[in-house]
């Protein structure tokens, strides 16, 4: 149905909100529109990776319900609090984090196991950030579990991880919506779903405050990237920013069904324009 056009799906940073991409994929599947490559950053990489591995959208939806239960993200790392108060005694390294990542790691491993980028049915690219140099890193080989774990490492929340010789952290620090990768990989039509990173709710603690500040920067980075890619791109770019009525927290895993529905509605809105573009290119 793609009339020979190479379509890329880019799923941006947005933690649990990234599940909206599943709603979009549901619509595309119904219409027989295939995706030729997936590029993802942060939480988007979980859904992007499963989709690239050939899982059906409905399968990912039900896997998601099993994997992302509330307890995954609720365990506080007690050591971090001691590190904050007494940094000299409880040494802080590059792995400083406020949440315990053990359960998240187990669940991610359960979903992705030992699969590598070679096992995908369509090309998959995952964006992360080198925490030492600050550079954007695109991962397209090796363990998918490791790549996903790296890009969901939101600093201060989950610790960065060592992959080969690099210390990798969240893609949101360098490329919250990695459209540039899709352009470089020769996509002719790019569907990019991004998410705002600023919460409208009151901040009740210092870590909320730090995350709000980094959200301001990342949101401005996202806007600057979009302006740049809009001007520079040589392919068709469809940008979707799902709007959520309530504030969705990073750990609101129970809101996923509602998020998927919002993504689906966005997919329906996109459809006429996308179809027109595909027909024109016949």
């Amino acid at each position: 149905m793609n009339n020979g056009k190479k379509i890329a799906l880019v799923i941006g940073w947005g933690s649990v909100k990234c599940a909206a991409a599943l709603g979009l994929l549901r619509v595309l599947k119904r219409e027989g529109i295939g995706i030729d490559m997936v590029i993802a950053s942060g939480g988007g990489s979980i859904f992007g990776a499963l989709f690239a591995l050939g899982y059906d959208v409905e399968e990912i939806v039900s896997m998601n319900q099993r994997l992302w239960t509330h307890e995954v993200t609720e365990k506080t790392n007690r050591l971090a609090i001691l590190q904050l108060i007494l940094p000299k005694i409880f040494k802080v390294g590059e792995y400083f984090n406020l949440r315990d990542d053990q359960l998240m790691n187990e669940r991610l491993f359960e979903a992705l196991g030992k699969q590598t980028f070679k096992d995908t049915t369509i090309p998959l690219f995952i964006s992360a950030t080198d925490y030492k140099t600050g550079k954007h890193i695109v991962i397209s080989q090796g363990s998918i579990y490791q790549a996903v774990r790296a890009t969901v490492a939101l600093p201060l929340v989950f610790p960065p991880i060592q992959v080969d010789n690099q210390l990798l952290a969240d893609g949101y620090l360098s490329e919250p919506l990695p459209i540039g990768v899709a352009i470089q990989e020769g996509a002719q039509i790019i569907i990019a779903m991004g998410f705002e990173s600023i919460s409208q709710e009151a901040r009740n603690s210092f870590s909320d405050y730090l995350l709000h500040l980094s959200g301001i920067l990342s949101n401005n980075l996202l806007q600057a990237s979009l302006s740049f890619y809009n001007l520079a791109h040589h392919s068709e770019l469809f940008i979707i920013f799902p709007q959520f009525e309530d504030d969705i927290h990073m750990f609101d895993t129970h809101k996923v069904p509602e998020i998927i529905q919002i993504g689906e509605a966005e997919g329906e809105k996109l459809l006429p324009k996308l179809k027109q573009k595909l027909e024109f290119s016949q």
Binding site: Q83, P87, G93, F96, L173, S174, E175, L217, L221
Partner: peptide
């Protein structure tokens, strides 16, 4: 990176560098 202050400052420096580069581009 050996204190929470360093850790946070690294995060902000990375973001600001990327923002500067993207805006300027």
């Amino acid at each position: 990176v050996n204190s929470p202050v360093n850790f946070a400052s690294q995060m902000f420096s990375i973001l600001e560098n990327q923002l500067l580069a993207k805006k300027f581009a």
